[in-house]
């Protein structure tokens, strides 16, 4: 899923003033993920239990799977929790512009890294039309890449 942020112009503005920060968690798309999460968690525990009974029944091979399935179930929970935590951080980051995002800037792919693009202005370019046109072109490219990345599933 893309970020469950309502698409459109609202995205760059302040996060949905219509409700508390956790509001996105009850959107249909997220409810689907929660459901999948619960089903897969209990499903994996059930599989582990099944393997445990097979192991106790004398199938030595099942011991490996007895421990593996609960491990996967735990991993699913961690995955789910981290995803939600990220989502909250993104929402908070949009309002505050935290110092953390400054620090990890070099780590980010170009589509999510804030890039300083100075579209040519009279004060620093001495009215060099060619240069300001080129910088405007760069800015446009940057904006396009940003949108493109989001379309393909990169976090904004």
């Amino acid at each position: 899923m893309e970020n469950a942020v309502p698409a459109g112009p609202a995205e760059s503005a302040a996060p949905a003033p219509s409700g508390p920060a956790w509001r996105f968690l009850v959107q249909p798309r997220w409810l689907g993920w929660h459901l999948l999460m619960v089903v897969s968690f209990w499903g994996m525990l059930w599989l582990g239990d099944w393997q445990l009974h097979r192991a106790l029944g004398g199938n030595a091979l099942s011991w490996a799977y007895t421990f593996e399935w609960p491990l996967f179930a735990g991993f699913a929970v961690v995955f789910w929790a981290k995803t939600i935590k990220d989502e909250f951080r993104i929402k908070r980051g949009e309002t505050t512009g935290s110092a953390e995002s400054e620090a990890s800037r070099d780590d980010l792919p170009i589509s999510v890294r804030p890039v300083q693009v100075n579209v040519g202005t009279a004060q620093d370019d001495d009215g060099d039309e060619e240069l300001s046109a080129y910088n405007a072109y760069l800015a446009r490219l940057n904006a396009e890449v940003k949108r493109h990345g989001r379309w393909h599933g990169l976090r904004s």
Binding site: I110, R113, N118, N135
Partner: peptide, 12 residues
């Protein structure tokens, strides 16, 4: 794309 953007940055 991530590696490419690490190597070069879109500087004006």
């Amino acid at each position: 794309p991530a590696l490419a953007s690490q190597a070069e940055q879109a500087e004006p």
